[in-house]
Nucleic acid binder design. Structure first.
Lengths: 129, 129
DNA sequence: TACGTTCTACGATAACTCTAGTAGGAAGTC
DNA sequence: GACTTCCTACTAGAGTTATCGTAGAACGTA
């Protein structure tokens, strides 16, 4: 149960890997919004590898990088941090903030509610899949 | 609508200010879990002030620091970042993660659902209070 | 008035982050 | 075989973060 955390740029890169699956340096670079030097992207990936957040395997002469940390784990860490530090431990406050403001229509609110209903329906025990 | 962001330590300090309201250096130091030197805390506060996230006023010979960034604004920034980078833009995925795992009982799930219901009941227009 | 306490101001240092250049290997092309 | 292209390894430098020491002002007290 270790706390995973990423710097801003590392997170950009991880986002690409989570979204697209294993990528080469060139592919990550391509996918990034900011226009970085090839070696910059490589350096970030190597840093991530040093920290144990990604691994790589040879593919031809290039390396293909795979995320070792799942989205979910990173999300759990990040959310815990936010709930604790920003919302004083209140998930309600977080949720309020999440659905506050524009961009969240009734349709989505209902989908979110469905998530909660489903979990409530679980009976609280069936937790695995 | 600027993006507010804090470093780890800055966030620790902001958390204290949000929780307790305006504080002196000594009070912040007292409230922090980690045992830091007085000057360390002072430095963090001064950094935050330089960045415009807190302000201070004299009180006797000490300074009392006040947060200029509201919890909500910091939360919105942080959540946007997480939704986008970690959950691929899906609030549903975020919510699932938020209520997944232990520590969330039915009671709380119902409270969270109430948050959504209330917003749905708003009719979508009445947004202020 | 001399002393201890409580503050701020300033300076400093180590570590980390971010970015990218240069060197050199491998592989295809003419 | 020389040239170009793509890729990694290594190196480097500026900027930021995190932490704290020392100096010195202000104030109460013996």
């Amino acid at each position: 149960m270790d706390q995973v955390s990423f710097t801003e740029r590392e997170l950009d890169v991880m986002a690409v890997l989570w979204e697209r699956g294993p990528c080469t340096v060139a592919e990550v670079r391509e996918a990034l919004v900011d226009d970085l030097a090839y070696t910059t992207v490589l350096t970030v990936l190597r840093t991530l590898e040093t920290k144990g957040h990604v691994s790589h395997e040879e593919q031809g002469k290039a390396h293909r990088y795979t995320p070792l940390v799942a989205r979910e784990a990173a999300g759990t860490s990040a959310l815990r941090r936010i709930v604790d530090k920003i919302f004083g431990g209140s998930r309600e406050l977080l949720l309020t903030n999440l659905v506050d403001g524009r961009g969240v229509d009734d349709e989505e609110l209902r989908r979110l509610r469905a998530v909660l209903n489903q979990r409530l329906g679980d009976g609280g025990s069936a937790h695995d899949r």
